[in-house]
Computed example of a mutant assay.
Amino acid sequence: MPRDTRMSRMLHVLIHMDRHVKRATSETIARMLDTNPVVVRRMMAGFRAAGIVTSEKGHGGGWELARPLAEISLLDVYRAVGEPALFNIGPDAEAATCLVERAVDARMSETLNEAERLLMARFADIRVADVADEFEARFAQMKAEGRLDPAHDHFG
């Protein structure tokens, strides 16, 4: 099963909106993500419903952050993308008839639920601004070391 990259892709978009573009059209975001503007509008609708972005239609319109990155947690972003499954392992959805399988399923479910609780707590603690600050630090270091690719046009 392929990885669900919606959360990391949308974190990417939010940081660009904060640091580089302020207001972005669905077409601009679609080019950034190499996808279709309809897909972008569908994803951004969840962010608008969560109060993370606002939108304005028409000429000069687009998507804009509704609040600072310091007020947006990774948990907010996770919820806005629809709370995708975190793990691609675990027990079968149907109840097992075999006692061994029941024991395995119970332990797997318990362990995965505990891991999910820990991950959600961590997501709640991390702000998107923390990720953006990490980008800034990496960017500054690469710039100081002369390791920036001048052909990389992703920052404008």
Results as ranks from 00 to 15, higher is better:
residue 12 H to I: 04
residue 52 I to C: 03
residue 91 P to V: 00
residue 141 Q to G: 10
residue 52 I to P: 01
residue 15 I to S: 03
residue 19 R to L: 13
residue 100 V to E: 07
residue 49 A to M: 06
residue 8 S to L: 02
residue 140 A to P: 00
residue 128 V to Q: 02
residue 3 R to L: 15
residue 3 R to Y: 10
residue 32 M to V: 00
residue 48 R to H: 05
residue 27 E to I: 07
residue 31 R to Y: 02
residue 153 D to E: 11
residue 80 A to S: 05
residue 40 V to M: 00
residue 65 L to K: 08
residue 76 D to T: 01
residue 115 A to P: 02
residue 59 H to Q: 12
residue 52 I to F: 05
residue 118 L to S: 13
residue 16 H to P: 04
residue 40 V to W: 03
residue 72 I to E: 03
residue 81 V to P: 06
residue 128 V to E: 07
residue 139 F to C: 07
residue 121 A to Q: 14
residue 57 K to V: 02
residue 11 L to R: 04
residue 139 F to T: 07
residue 47 F to I: 06
residue 85 A to L: 12
residue 8 S to K: 01
residue 107 R to K: 13
residue 107 R to S: 10
residue 11 L to H: 00
residue 151 A to F: 09
residue 82 G to R: 04
residue 132 A to L: 11
residue 53 V to D: 00
residue 40 V to R: 09
residue 17 M to W: 12
residue 87 F to M: 07
residue 68 P to W: 03
residue 120 M to V: 05
residue 65 L to N: 04
residue 68 P to S: 14
residue 136 E to Y: 06
residue 86 L to H: 11
residue 83 E to G: 04
residue 142 M to R: 08
residue 18 D to R: 09
residue 78 Y to T: 02
residue 147 R to A: 11
residue 93 A to Q: 14
residue 5 T to M: 11
residue 120 M to H: 07
residue 13 V to D: 04
residue 25 T to I: 10
residue 91 P to D: 01
residue 143 K to Q: 09
residue 73 S to D: 05
residue 95 A to M: 04
residue 75 L to F: 09
residue 133 D to S: 15
residue 25 T to M: 10
residue 130 D to K: 05
residue 42 R to P: 07
residue 93 A to E: 14
residue 149 D to V: 00
residue 87 F to S: 02
residue 55 S to D: 09
residue 23 R to L: 13
residue 143 K to D: 15
residue 123 F to D: 06
residue 144 A to E: 12
residue 38 V to P: 00
residue 5 T to N: 13
residue 14 L to Y: 01
residue 107 R to G: 07
residue 45 A to C: 10
residue 130 D to T: 13
residue 2 P to E: 13
residue 148 L to F: 03
residue 100 V to W: 09
residue 147 R to D: 05
residue 23 R to W: 03
residue 32 M to F: 04
residue 72 I to Q: 12
residue 130 D to M: 15
residue 47 F to H: 03
residue 61 G to A: 07
